[in-house]
Amino acid sequence: MNDVTDIIMGVFEDNGLVVAFAVVGIIMMVAGWMSRTLTRGHIAGSALAILIGLVLSYLGGLYSGGEKGLADIAAFSGLAVMGGSMLRDFAIVATAYGVDVREIRRAGPAGALSLVVGIFGSFIIGALVALAFGYRDAESLATIGAGAATYIVGPVTGTAVGASSEVIALSVAAGLVKSVAAMIGTPLIARYIGLNNPKSAMVFGGLIGTTSGVSGGLAAVDKRLVPYGAMTATFYTGLGCLLGPSVFFFILHAMLG
C-alpha cells in the first residue's frame, strides 16, 4: 500500500507544472459551479476562483510554514511555475493583443498622474499608520510607507535607509495585505468606482500598483481591462524603488530632524 502512495506522490512531484494545470482546472470548475448555483451569477467565476486560490494558499502556509502558499507542499510545487512572474507577465502581454492604442494614448495624462498620486499616497498613508502605532524615526516610517506601496518597494527602501529587520518584515506584510485586499476587494467595489472602461483601469493600475493585486483584481472584474491596468502598474514598483529611499526618505528626515 505504501508503495502505491509513493508512486503516486512521485508522479505528482516529477510533473509539477502538469499537476498545476489540473489543480487550477478543478478550482475553476468548482468556482464556475459556485458562481452559477450559489450566487446565481452575481459573483463572477474568476473572482471566486481567485478567492479559493487565496484560501488554499493560506491553508498551504499553515500546513508547511513556508512563504509560497500551496506551492510549499511538494506535490503542488508546480503552481509556483504556473503562477510565477514569468508566465504571469507572458499572459499579461498576451492580453494586449488587439488592444486599442488610442485608448492608451487618451488615458496617458490620467495614468501618469495616478502613478504619482498612487506612490506618494501609499507612502504617506503607510507612514501615518506607522506614526499612529508609535514609530518616530524616519527610517521606520519610510520603510513602512514604502511597504504600503508594494511588498518589493518596502524591503528595498528599508535596506537602503538601514531600517531594522523587524520593520522590514512589517513592510513586507503591509504590502502583502494590500495585494490580497486588492484581489478580493476590486470585484466587490468595481461598480461603485466606475471601473468598467480602459481609462479607469489605467488609473486603477497606477493607484494600486502592486502587480499581483492589479492583475488579480482586474481578472476578477473583466479580463479585457487587464492590459490597461498593467500598462501603468508596470512602472509602479520601479518608480517606488526609486522614490522611496530618496525623495520620500529625505522629506521625512527633514521633517523629523
Binding site: 498545476a20 494545470f21 489543480v23 487550477v24 482546472g25 478550482i27 475553476m28 474568476s46 476562483a49 481567485i50 478567492l51 479559493i52 486560490g53 487565496l54 484560501v55 488554499l56 494558499s57 493560506y58 502556509g61 499553515l62 512563504e67 509560497k68 502558499g69 500551496l70 506551492a71 503542488f76 503552481l79 509556483a80 504556473m82 503562477g83 510565477g84 508566465l87 504571469r88 499572459a91 492580453t95 498613508i125 503607510g126 499608520v129 506607522a130 502605532f133 513602512i144 511597504g147 504600503a148 518584515a169 512589517l170 513592510s171 513586507v172 506584510a173 503591509a174 502583502l176 495585505v177 495585494s179 490580497v180 484581489m183 499581483s212 492583475s215 488579480g216 481578472a219 479580463k223 487587464v226
Partner: peptide, 27 residues
C-alpha cells in the same frame, strides 16, 4: 491569463499577510 492568475493567488503568502500584526494590516 485567468488560470495563471488563479495559480498566482494560490502561491501568495496569505499567512504572512494575516500574521503581520495590526499595524501591517491597517497600513
Amino acid at each position: 491569463y485567468i488560470p495563471i492568475v488563479v495559480a498566482m493567488a494560490a502561491i501568495q503568502n496569505v499567512k504572512g499577510a494575516l500574521t503581520g500584526g495590526p499595524m501591517a494590516i491597517t497600513a
